[in-house]
Design a protein around this nucleic acid. Structure first.
Lengths: 235, 235
DNA sequence: GTCTATAGTTCGATAGAC
DNA sequence: GTCTATCGAACTATAGAC
């Protein structure tokens, strides 16, 4: 079951390909990434990519699934622990369970997790068939678990607002994980996105306040649709 | 200066190319988009693309600049009006000035603005040289104007938190404009992202609450760095 | 399992006629 | 300005030797 590579300091060729693909896909996206660049970075022969993964498409999917399974397993573990006690967890704890596993995986896997975060941002922003399929396949289930959790700990929040809360939380968090350094540029270095613990703490404060505001704003009308707000006509 | 096309119901070839390119780039991203698909959609000869725009790269840039200039002009107009009166505008009005012009442009230009919103999401999530350059060139200036405005209307908020506030606001808003229908999927149709007025109203409520929470959380310590929060250790 | 060599496409861009 | 035709350069994927 375990056959040592010719070079002792290298893992299996398949693993080397997965890691290299993660980096190349993250930097260039699916279309602009080339199997040659992946083979070069992995230091394996080009034909091996197709021997192990058949097509570029299936390689991409393998990379995506590997890391998302790891992250979602951690999320489920934390969620289960939070709800196993006698008292109800705080909303902030739910959000930490949503955000932290991504950066923890990023720290562990030799930077591969950070590459993955950029991949996810690309996939989540894509509207092609592959992006939609992978997002749904790997994240619809865990998304509904977090939406359920939000409804449990935020009194009176509607399902509709809980779903929007999850969407806003994810849309804030994923670009932070990908660390595009834009906050640093806009603040002339004042904001640092490499201290992810501080960044997440900040984001959790922001998101929790937003969610509670949604719960209140929507609770005042019984209709189950978005309230007709009074802040959309500026002048 | 104005030469009518052979087909009277069609505008200039260059405009037709720009519109078609906007749609194709939005659907497939820069790399996966082909000049042939753009030429077909625009119903012009392939060679005309290179005649008018020289390269695929410069065509992409022209599409991006055209619409972002239009949106940012509107934003500046609203901002100027808000700060021209005697009383200080509300934070919610600043946020509406940030979010609404994108959807207004989307409504006007035969759906082109919605294609552009997807382009922006792709560019903003990219880490390649082109994405970084275009984002900085078209959006760094307007970003700083909104960060300034946030600091003016939110008492005691630090520059650092104002920058993060802008980042969170944009990261929430852009995916909404792109309308990926994910909220609808996760809510089994309960959330609708095609009613952008309601979506924006919802987002403004969420973002304003988040910003005020950031201002408070950061105000309690004088150090100018992120406070060390107490919500990052779940169990 | 790993390699070389290459088939088979597709793409961006241009030359040159009209 | 608009067209046809095509070049040359990439790419994915495979065949087949070892």
């Amino acid at each position: 079951m375990l056959q040592p590579a010719a070079n002792a300091e290298r893992r299996d060729a398949a693993d080397a390909i997965l890691d290299a693909a993660e980096a190349v896909f993250a930097d260039h996206g699916f279309a602009a990434a080339t199997t040659r660049a992946i083979a070069d970075l992995a230091k394996v022969n080009l034909a091996l990519i197709h021997y192990y993964f058949r097509t570029k498409e299936q390689l991409f999917e393998a990379v995506f699934v590997r890391r998302s399974d790891e992250i979602n397993d951690r999320r489920r573990g934390i969620l289960a622990e939070l709800f196993s006690g006698d008292s109800e967890p705080a909303l902030e704890q739910i959000l930490v369970a949503l955000l932290r596993p991504t950066i923890e995986v990023g720290r562990m896997s030799n930077g591969g997790g950070f590459h993955y975060a950029r991949m996810v941002v690309n996939v989540a922003s894509g509207h092609d068939e592959r992006s939609t399929r992978l997002t749904g396949m790997q994240y619809n289930g865990i998304a509904r678990e977090f939406i359920d959790a939000i409804q449990k700990v935020v009194p009176g929040i509607s399902r509709e607002m809980a779903v929007w809360s999850y969407m806003h939380a994810i849309n804030i968090a994923m670009p932070l994980m990908a660390r595009n350094h834009r906050a640093a540029v806009l603040s002339d270095g004042l904001c640092r996105d490499d201290d992810l613990d501080a960044v997440i703490d900040n984001a959790v404060t922001f998101i929790a306040a937003g969610i509670r505001a949604l719960a209140i704003s929507h609770a005042v009308d019984e209709a189950g649709r978005l309230r007709s707000g009074n802040n959309s006509t500026p002048a």
